[in-house]
Each structure stands twice: as C-alpha cells, then as structure tokens.
C-alpha cells in the first residue's frame, strides 16, 4: 500500500446559503499526479485552499502529511505550508517586485541567515528548472501569461516542497503554451519528487499530466480512476457532457 500524503474525509464547506463541498473524500498518494476536474464554480479552488489553511472546512477532516490542518496553530501551520507549493490560478506574482525578488521572497522570509551566494544559487537553479533564467531582472508586468505561470511555479519550488497544488495551471493560455506547462508539471514531479494535485477543466492537460483523475460534481467526487476509466466507461451524464463539451471546444 502506498503512503497517503493527503487524506480528505467527509469534507463540507458552505458560504452562506451556498453549499460548495458536500462531503468530499479524496486521497493523494506519495509521488502521484492527481487531476481534479470540475466545472468552474464547483469548489475546486475552495478544496485546495482548505488544504493550505487559507479557508477552513465546516465539517469533516483533512490531513496533510499526517496533520489535521484545521487544528494546527499558526506556527505549525506555517511550517507545514513551507512543504506545500501552491501555484495560483492568476500566478499571484508580486507586482512590485522583480522576478528575482519574487523568488527570493519565500527564502529570505523562511530560511534564517541565508547567504547571498546560496540565495543566488537557489534562485538560478529554479529559474533554470522552468527555463526562464533570462527574465531574472524583469518585472512581472513585462512577462507573458505562460512565463508568469512558470515563475509562479518556480517561486513555489524554491523551498523544495513535498506537495504541489496547481490551480488551473493552463487556464487562459494558448494550446502550445499549455503543452509546455503540462511538460513542466511532469518534469517538476520527476525532478523534485513531488506529489501533486492538478486542478483543471482542460482535458488535454488532465490526460498528459495525470496518473489518476477525480471529478468533482455537485460538491462530491463522482467519478475516479484513470483517464480512460473515467471518460470511456462512465454512465454519468454530467461526466459525459463534460467530456463532450471539452472536445467540441
């Protein structure tokens, strides 16, 4: 049996009258790439935000690396957060800082007494991983959407996370850039030995990056398995329509 790095049981979350998650069960195993599919507004982002303590569930348990996130104090939670890389949908690069400063931010804040030489080495090594060493002194506003995504991913890699959470890594990018990002996700998984959750509604991305898929429909996971299993044999009409819709597009 493989080790579980994330274990979610009976997770519920509502905002006012809106029930977003209605009892989610999910496991992420060590070393795998799990793709979470679902329509926009289905609560995918909410789910991974609960995983890093940006939001708190109403009911249910969520264990990350063995810790129940909602019960952690702020110190312990921050320690845990350093082991999780979160790639935001809008990249979330700090506008007022250069690429170098963006990448240094997690380092200087969390690694006490780090020297300049070591800092430069780490920054350059993650930039090389994402293939953007030439942008080191640019501002985020000067980068393209795909480049911003890569820098966002690089920023999370700099602390060598055990888990990567990607929130719609290919949303809003052209097909070729999408493919590049997909490759990068696979490369990160191999190079950094991460376990990842990839949120997307892009089936190409899902197929290329995922070892396993899970589909979030109406607040619960209704179809789960390998790509073929989920889509070829599913009788669920919403899964089928999701598949058809993607390929008509």
């Amino acid at each position: 049996m493989q080790k579980k790095v994330i274990e979610v049981r009976g997770l519920k979350k509502s905002f006012g009258d809106l029930d977003v998650l209605k009892g989610v069960d999910l496991d992420l195993y060590d070393g795998e790439n799990l793709v979470v599919l679902g329509k926009s507004g289905s609560g995918k982002s909410v789910l991974i935000k609960i995983m890093v303590g940006l939001l708190t569930q109403d009911e249910g348990t969520l264990k990350v690396l063995g810790h129940e996130v909602s019960e952690m104090g702020s110190k312990a939670l921050n320690q845990l957060r350093l082991r999780i890389g979160f790639s935001f949908q809008a990249s979330a690069l700090y506008d007022s800082m250069t690429v170098r400063e963006n990448l240094e931010f997690p380092l200087v804040r969390n690694v006490k007494g780090i020297g300049k030489a070591e800092k430069d080495k780490l920054v350059e090594s993650v930039l090389e991983s994402v293939g953007l060493i030439q942008t080191i002194n640019q501002m985020p506003s000067e980068l393209s959407g795909g480049q911003r995504k890569r820098i966002g991913i690089a920023r999370t890699l700099i602390l060598k996370p055990a888990i990567m959470l990607y929130d719609e890594p290919t949303a809003g990018l052209d097909p070729i850039t999408c493919m590049d990002i997909n490759k990068l996700i696979n490369q990160v998984n191999e190079e950094y030995k991460t376990s990842s959750i990839i949120i997307t509604h892009d089936l190409t991305c899902a197929k290329v990056t995922g070892d396993r898929m899970a589909m979030l429909i109406d607040g619960v996971f209704s179809a789960e398995g390998e790509f073929e299993e989920v889509f070829k044999y599913s009788e669920d009409p919403s899964v089928k329509s999701f598949y058809d819709y993607n390929f008509i597009q």
Binding site: V52, R81, I84, F86, F88, A90, D95, F105, P106, N110
Partner: peptide, 17 residues
C-alpha cells in the same frame, strides 16, 4: 486591492508570511 484580487495576499500567506 489588486494584491487581494490577484491572490498575491493568499500567496504571501502560503509562503508563511
């Protein structure tokens, strides 16, 4: 405000700041 809506504030929080 723009840091909030582009999730830069969340990004800071998850990098333990």
């Amino acid at each position: 405000g723009s840091m909030k809506v582009t999730e830069q504030i969340d990004a800071m929080e998850v990098s333990a700041t």
